[in-house]
Write a protein that binds this DNA or RNA. Structure first.
Lengths: 333, 333
DNA sequence: CTGAAAGCGCTTACAG
DNA sequence: CTGAAAGCGCTTACAG
């Protein structure tokens, strides 16, 4: 394995000159640069990342903290992972992906050992136990998901309250007077998935303002309970003319359920939801929906994090709530 | 940030003694050990991973190379990712996840810079361009997916040929004489997804031995094409009494399609497939199937890789084809 | 435009 | 049982 010393010897220069040629941090004469380049390609030299990290205190690695919960739906999680990874790479960073059950411990482990320059937390909950560990770390972090206390943290999420209002407004504009909201499973609320109640409560409040009746239910996360619960809800709420589904697993299963029941959308029932375009193509989801863009969220988190790494005080902590956009697919009447 | 020198000073010993206390590589007296432990907790010391890596030439990081193709189904990929990550962690390794479009380049980048001690390649194809880069690397690798040339590589995969035979035997035993095989999308074959033709060809051959007629078709990877193609296949092959579905996207969509057609399984049609238990629960899949266990595969790849890192020559290269197991869910008659 | 040297934070023979 | 020292492969003031 060739080192910078080997290159220096082969090129007949000092190690520092090779280093500067590599970094471009000082002018190098045409000829020496050529000799160094030749030596590098001839020896197949690559900088040792660990040694460089030790010398510069920069690892060029970002930690990605995630944990897969049983009540989540795999496709959405993968979209976030890929978005974060791709965005990081474009900025020159690699991703250390950590899936420990012990989130705070994992943060401590990778930050205190200086394995990473910053961390991205996925799926942040209201009282996320990882946040104390993050605040105690030398490295900055970026969250995807809104915690109760955002002090000192860079946070990114869809604006679920605005999303709820947008969907309720849409249904109200079409004259609906009685609607059903299918929220994430109860367990998501219990473990502090704030997006769940932020959406639901905002929907309820907005509907109340219009005098619309709202019935709130929970979806399930595993088959066959998903279909069973949807059927039970639809049986119980026959008067409702519209359905707002805020749950990936439920919306993915909905087409099958409605087909079985002989319910035609939007003739018999209007349906709106929240999901990404890709998600809608993986499944067969022809519903008017708020576009969730995990891609955009992941990118934004990474970009801010990298900025924060470079300039810790470039701005006070930012809370970026992405404004919802409606994709009208004609599933409402 | 406390260093090993700070700990040494606080404990009144030399840096080497602290280092040995940390590694346990030589006996330390009771008292000095206690003083060192006290200093460590008081200073909140953690070993700098980069410095240790530089000194030991061990990063305790494994590269995970993956690339998400449009013709893949997200849930399965996530299962592999989590399995590899969890298995690595249990063995003391972290995961550097790399999703570059340029796979060979990514391998070169992380291996030649000594960022990792070994790499796991997911989704290996027949002529995988990453293999040359892997063979040229200092670090060993473990593949998930069977390439055409396995020389010098540790490879793990489900035995798709045995799986095909198992399913055909099962159907033959029940008296089926005309069956349909739904393979992965055409594009998977074109990019060298060997599992696709290994399964199909073995099924065809086995069926021929029994005098069973087989009709081979391709599934699709994106809705609404998935449903459309399934309907087209079922329309065209009304004489067939059994369906073998070797494609995640198609099997996930099948229940809806059959419901719509009023086809009852197994009364009107027998159905068998290949998928993992978790996958069957995410969707509503009540079909007799070969258990694919991405979990087990991921673990095995990691375990062998770690073994290979520790003892490069502990064995000649291994090709581990996992024997298929059938989960009978009563979808055949 | 270039070099010699110190330093990043560890580990590990070598000596006692 | 413990310490002084060299070395891992880089970067970067400091000097010329």
């Amino acid at each position: 394995m060739a080192t910078i010393g080997d290159v220096a010897k082969a090129a007949g220069v000092s190690r520092s000159t090779v280093s500067y040629a590599l970094s471009g941090n000082r002018p190098i004469s045409r000829e020496t640069r050529d000799r160094i380049d030749a030596a590098i390609t001839q020896l197949g030299f690559t900088v040792n990342a660990g040694a460089r990290a030790l010398a510069t205190s920069q690892t060029m690695v970002l930690g990605l903290l995630l944990q897969f919960h049983d009540d989540e739906f795999p496709p959405a999680m993968l979209q976030y992972i890929l978005a974060v990874s791709d965005a990081a790479r474009e900025l020159g960073y690699d991703i250390l992906m950590v899936t420990d059950t012990d989130g705070p411990g994992a943060i401590r482990r990778i930050t205190s050992s200086n394995r990473v320059d910053g961390v991205v937390l996925l799926d942040v909950t209201h009282d996320d136990p990882r946040l104390d560990a993050l605040r105690a770390a030398r490295q900055p972090g970026a969250l995807v998901g809104l915690p109760g206390d955002t002090a000192g943290l860079d946070v990114f999420d869809l604006d679920f309250e605005a999303s709820a209002r947008l969907l309720v407004d849409h249904l109200h504009g079409l004259g609906h007077r009685e609607i059903v909201v299918v929220s994430p499973p109860r367990h998501v609320f219990e473990r502090g998935g704030a997006y769940a109640w932020r959406f639901r409560d905002a929907a309820v409040e907005r509907a109340a303002g219009y005098g619309i009746r709202v019935h709130c239910h929970h979806g399930e996360s595993q088959q066959p309970a998903i279909e069973r619960s949807l059927n039970a809800i639809l049986d119980e709420r026959r008067e409702a003319t519209a359905l707002i589904v805020h749950n990936d697993a439920s919306i993915a299963a909905l087409p099958g359920v409605l087909r079985e029941r002989g319910t035609v959308v939007p003739r018999d029932l209007s349906v709106v939801s929240l999901y990404s375009r890709d998600f809608g193509r993986t499944f067969l989801l022809p519903y008017t929906a708020v576009e969730t863009s995990p891609d955009g969220l992941g990118r934004e988190a990474v970009q801010h994090l990298v900025r924060r790494i470079a300039e810790p005080d470039y701005a006070p902590s930012v809370v970026g709530l992405i404004e919802p956009k409606l994709s009208d697919r004609g599933s409402t009447a």
